[in-house]
Structures are given as C-alpha cells and as structure tokens.
C-alpha cells in the first residue's frame, strides 16, 4: 500500500483528502444535528460519536482503507458516499479481535511441508518466495470461493442463513470447513457479546434485515455483521467490506509464516506494506465481487489438496 510515488499524485491525493475531510466534517455536523431524530433508512449512516473522523487523526490510519477510493470520491464531489466507518474497520482489522484467526494458516503449513513432493524449480525458491507464491494462490482461491458469499450476505442480509447453508454445501474441504466455521461462529459471538450493543444500526423490527441470525461460516457472517453495523448497500462500502476481510486474511497468513519461521517479523511487515500485496488484494476484491454465488468455485485445485492433507502432517502447529 504505497502512498503516492510522484509529487503530482501526492498533490492530487492531498487535494482529495482535504475535500474528503471537509465533506466528512460537514456530514458529521449534519449527523450530530440529526441525532435526536430517528434515522429512517440505512443510507444515512451515523458516524460514531467519537471524533475518530477528525482530520488530525494519524494520516497512516486512513491510508490503507481510503487510498483506493480517493479517485472515486473526488469524482463525486457534492454527492459523497457515506464516510468510511473507520471505527468499525479498526475494530475488525484488529489482530486482538478474539476470533482465533491466529490458529489457522489456511493451508500454508501443509503447503510448506509438502515442499519435497512438489516439483523442483530452479533457482531453488527461498522461504520468502514460497510464501509470496502461496499468498497469491490463496488470494486467488479465496476470491472465487469465499468472496462471492461475503458479497451476497452483505447485499441480501435477509437470506444470510440460506447463503450460509449453500456455502456449507460448497466448501468441500474438511479442514477448510472447520477453519471457516470456527472463525465464523467466533465472529458472531464477538458481535453479539461486544459489538452489537454499540454498533448495531438496524432497528430490531426492520423487516428487511433480520438482526438475530447466526451464520456459521466466516465469509457469510462477515458480510452479514458488517451490514448490521449500518454500512449502506453501496459499491464503495462493499469494496471495503471485502478489502478488510482479504487484508485480514493476508495478515493471518503472514503471522502464520512468522511462526513457521519462514520469514521474520520485519519481512512480514514489509510484505504487508508492499505495493504488490495491495494490488493482489484489490484484484481479488474486484474478481470476487463480480462472481455470483452460483458461479463460485475452486480456481486453484491444489489449494484444496494441500489444505485437505493438513491432517496428514506429522507435526503441526496450526488448525488448518
């Protein structure tokens, strides 16, 4: 996620940020003014009361989430989409979010252990190149299997349970199923016990969006709870929903890689900050949200095999 490389871009981006900030502030003011009036629909998202949207916030924090949208937002001056709910993203992208993602390597551990069974390539891959290759394959795979369901659950939260059941039928790898269910249920219970009291923005008697569903799988519950938190059904919001999910996935893989001693923590952060990872994640977002749930499928069949064979490892530190 580089900020900007050329001065011209930097200027443009600065302009964009300034205008964004100005408009966010006016929105905030408007929202505060409205605070006593019940909010009729989703489209008028109320930002959290804290001044987290304040322009003085550390600039880095907004970088990963908003840099992609700068261009779009400047094009739309005056008709600005609801502000990025930074508060929600900071909560959901927190590595301390108790959903146990650290216990899963999404097949990385198995992939590395099968190293000797894969064809020899010259020059011999380094642990770092092995990791980045797996990262690419994993993002490709997840973009055609899970992302369509995140998208669908976000767009039609009322059918989240059907979607969850379909996802359950579609995820045929036993190890991947366990990983997805464990994180999905954990996410729902964090939502229930910790977030819902302050983040739930849907009226309990809303007939279109039920607020008490408990999907099992990670992808569908991610799409569902982000929608419950009041994000509007817009393309920009959906992009963020999927972006944060995939970025979390990359973080989990990198954290697993550090614990597998493939790379050190500095290299992990270097990869996470790299332009390439940013691009891969954005590509995966774009690819995945264009796929309907009926068209979803495994695009990297070897990933299912590596991950399925995780149980056959002699020693293992991860659950997937």
């Amino acid at each position: 996620m580089e900020q900007n490389t050329t001065p011209k871009n930097a200027e443009e981006s600065l302009e964009a940020l300034k205008s964004q900030i100005a408009s966010l502030q006016s929105q905030l003011a408007a929202a505060k003014a409205q605070l006593q009036i019940p909010i009729p629909s989703l489209s008028s998202y109320t930002p959290p009361k804290s001044n987290i949207f304040n322009a003085d916030l550390h600039p880095f924090i907004r970088t990963p989430l908003t840099c992609i949208y700068n261009i779009k937002l400047t094009q739309k001056k005056g008709n600005l989409a609801p502000s990025p709910p930074l508060h929600l993203w900071l909560l959901l992208a927190d590595s301390a979010l108790p959903i146990g993602s650290f216990a899963f390597s999404s097949g990385l551990e198995s992939y590395i252990s099968h190293r000797s069974l894969r064809p020899a390539i010259s020059p011999k891959p380094t642990p770092k190149t092995e990791l980045t290759r797996f990262l690419r394959l994993s993002l490709l795979s997840i973009s055609t299997t899970t992302v369509p369901f995140i998208t669908a659950a976000f767009k039609s939260p009322s059918s989240v349970l059907t979607l969850d059941d379909t996802f359950d039928a579609t995820t045929t790898c036993e190890v991947a199923r366990r990983a997805s269910i464990s994180q999905g249920r954990a996410l729902c219970s964090v939502w229930d016990k910790s977030f819902a009291s302050s983040l739930l923005k849907i009226e309990p008697n809303n007939t279109e969006i039920p607020t008490h569903c408990k999907p099992d799988h990670f992808g569908p519950s991610w799409g569902y709870i982000t929608r419950l938190s009041g994000l509007p059904d817009t393309s920009e919001a959906l992009e963020q929903v999927v972006f944060v999910f995939l970025f979390n996935h990359v973080k989990a893989l990198l954290s697993a890689a550090v614990r597998l001693s493939l790379i050190g923590p500095y290299v992990a952060q270097q990869i996470l900050a790299s332009e390439e990872v940013g691009r891969l994640v954005r590509e995966a977002v774009e690819r995945g949200r264009g796929i309907g749930v009926e068209e979803a499928g495994q695009s990297v069949p070897t990933v299912d095999l590596w991950q399925g064979r995780h149980e056959r490892l002699y020693t293992r530190i991860f659950n997937s």
Binding site: T132, R133, R136, L137, L140, T144, T166, A169, T170, T172, E276, L280, E295, A296, G297, Q298, S299, P301
Partner: peptide
C-alpha cells in the same frame, strides 16, 4: 453438496 472447479487460462496470478 456442490463441488465446483473453475480453471481460467486467461487469468494471471502475479
């Protein structure tokens, strides 16, 4: 149960 495999030769990954 649904088992679906999609191989796309036109897509590059990296």
């Amino acid at each position: 149960l649904r088992d679906a495999m999609i191989l796309d030769g036109e897509m590059l990954c990296g």
